[in-house]
Amino acid sequence: MNLKMTWRLRLFHLFNYGILSLFALLCMYPFYYIFIYTISSPDAAGRGKVTLLPIEPTLNNYILMFQNDGIVSAFAVSLSRTVIGTLLSVFVSALFAYVLSRKQTPLRSFMYRVTIASMYLNAGLIPWFLVMKAYGLNNNFLLYVLPGAVSAYFVLLVKVYIEQLPSSLEESAIIDGAGYFTVFIKIIIPLSMPVLAAIGVFAAVGQWNSWFDNMILVDNQKLQTLQYLLWRVLNQSEAIAQAMQRLDTSNLNKMDQVVITPMSIKMTITMIVTLPILLVYPFMQRFFVKGIMLGAVKG
């Protein structure tokens, strides 16, 4: 009996390691494949020779891309919206959460209910589109950062967290004559860092990954985000032609000029869009997990 159990247990562990590792490989390999594709000679890559290791490693693809003004500008736009949008969203959502957590706030329960209801009332695409235009946010950088400044979900998470904080620090500060805003900046923000980091990471990923607002409301090239640039390159042959024309190939030798392929351009931009997430993500992962757990406490 005991022997049989051990045998079944071993089989289970073998199966368990196998299936989880296989799925992890499926999640990881595509990123690896695109990476080695972009640093291999485009000729070998185009013939399907690159599957496990790069062939004739070269950084030509990346050098070319970073000489392209369009890509550098799109990178700067994406970075700006990520930094500004995240800071704004975290600060405003936290401020609102703090005010809603104070019993003295006038209209507190009314404002709280309005906030919660906004999670379920979805106006839909066209009304949103028309209102953004009416606000003059089309072709405007503010379109990227203002609409997400108050997120009902973030407000809820931070409010739950603030309500668990001990009130003694705040009370003594108020007795010493500090105003509520000072208390928020000097006491509440430092004490709420774990939850603020969690929502900050969610906001940052959301900002970096956004492209739809860019597509429907911004046609100014100077405000083009990296994600939307990638989408255009993936889809429009003329966008690729444009990108290739603008590439400065003069400091490459003749061979390399011939073999720059549309696929290698697509893949290289894909990697440029992914790299910031790949580089930052392993350090941020514990914040994601924390954020989800905080949400689960509420649910």
């Binding site: 405003v92 906004s118 009332l121 209102v131 108050v150």
Partner: peptide, 20 residues
């Protein structure tokens, strides 16, 4: 302190409902 936050909420979550 609440006012700017509440205005942003109304402007981006409720005003679009008028588009209906």
């Amino acid at each position: 302190m609440a006012l700017p936050c509440f205005i942003l909420l109304i402007a981006f979550s409720y005003v679009p409902l008028y588009g209906w």
